[in-house]
Write a protein that binds this DNA or RNA. Structure first.
Lengths: 179, 179
DNA sequence: GATCGATTGTCAGAGACTGACAGATATAAC
DNA sequence: GTTATATCTGTCAGTCTCTGACAATCGATC
């Protein structure tokens, strides 16, 4: 069902395709569509909860003496590595995601759940003061690196892997104090 | 009208107050409400477009030889400074904002517009490679610092100023490569 | 007062979404 | 195969947000 939705959205734009239409193409009722996807946006975004848990677990498995940013990078990289090589289908989904403001916003909101998972772990790796504030901005920056790397990966013409782009994004913050 | 909305949302929760109810309390029709606010969420968020332009202008006015992150910090700090001392009313608005997913999402959507304004300027301050990717993550981190500083400022019991908290957030990225 | 532009409210409707409920389907046990 | 039960599905009515159309009202100007 999600694939049909993404196809239609890519073709005609997210806002120009109704839930009824998607459901009709798939051969179910709109009511059933809503049983599978809480919101229309979720047909594109899907349930990213398990991935967030995966990233958290990857992070938790890193050595506490490892530099924090490196651990975060490794955790997100681990997610990309475990997803295997992805192709045109995933890119199209990401492009649909980037095409509409409400989708982007909802996507980001979903990632906020990832932040909730990661922040306590990052907090325990920081020393006072202001652990709560600092962990939040660190985690948000990490999620931004992930999202942006994927968005760039999905842009037409991009040939580098998502993992390469993720590394570039994360490396930017190693040298932030120098630019 | 916005104040009434925020009061009601703070009292009963964003999702439990209808547009009709707000309009009735204010003494206008729901149709008029929608003439003032494109969406229900905008009653809380308002039109933040001009603030984003302000930040962009503040950033554009910084010396190109100044460290980039410092310029970004100064730009957002300039916004807080120009807002003057804010109080309990603003805090309540921010708390309402943090209370509901749809509000947070719409708020993020609005801030994405700020990013659009800032990214070209940051790009012109960076040397290749990967200027497009790097500028995006930098700007997103800056916006995250701003948002998080304000969110922390609005938490009950917080006595520090929003500008102090902004500085703490931005300073985190000066030392990212060292933690 | 007359004219014109701006504002407002009423109305109907679209689309996303939800709860209720009856019917259909799938599965397990006998 | 039959029966019982759990699950799924579609229909329906309804809520809420939001929009366009249009008539009525308001405010400013002459």
């Amino acid at each position: 069902m999600s694939e049909v939705a993404i196809e239609l959205f890519a073709l005609r734009g997210f806002d120009n395709v109704t839930v009824e239409e998607i459901a009709a193409v798939v051969g179910v009722s709109a009511r059933s569509f809503h049983r599978y996807f809480p919101t229309k946006e979720d047909a594109v975004i899907g349930d990213v909860g398990p991935w967030g848990e995966f990233v958290r677990d990857q992070f938790a498995a890193r050595s506490p003496s490892e530099p924090l940013w490196e651990s975060l990078h490794a955790a997100f990289d681990g997610l990309l590595a475990s997803s295997g090589e992805q192709g045109e289908r995933e890119k199209r989904g990401l492009r649909v995601l980037a095409s509409t403001a409400s989708l982007r916003a909802r996507h980001r909101e979903k990632h906020a759940l990832w932040e909730k998972l990661l922040i306590p772990l990052v907090e325990s790796r920081l020393a006072e003061p202001d652990v709560a504030l600092r962990s939040r901005v660190i985690v948000q920056a990490a999620v931004a690196c992930f999202d942006t790397a994927l968005a760039v990966w999905a842009t037409p013409g991009e040939t580098r892997s998502s993992r390469e782009l993720l590394a570039i994004a994360f490396d930017q913050f190693d040298t932030m104090g120098e630019i």
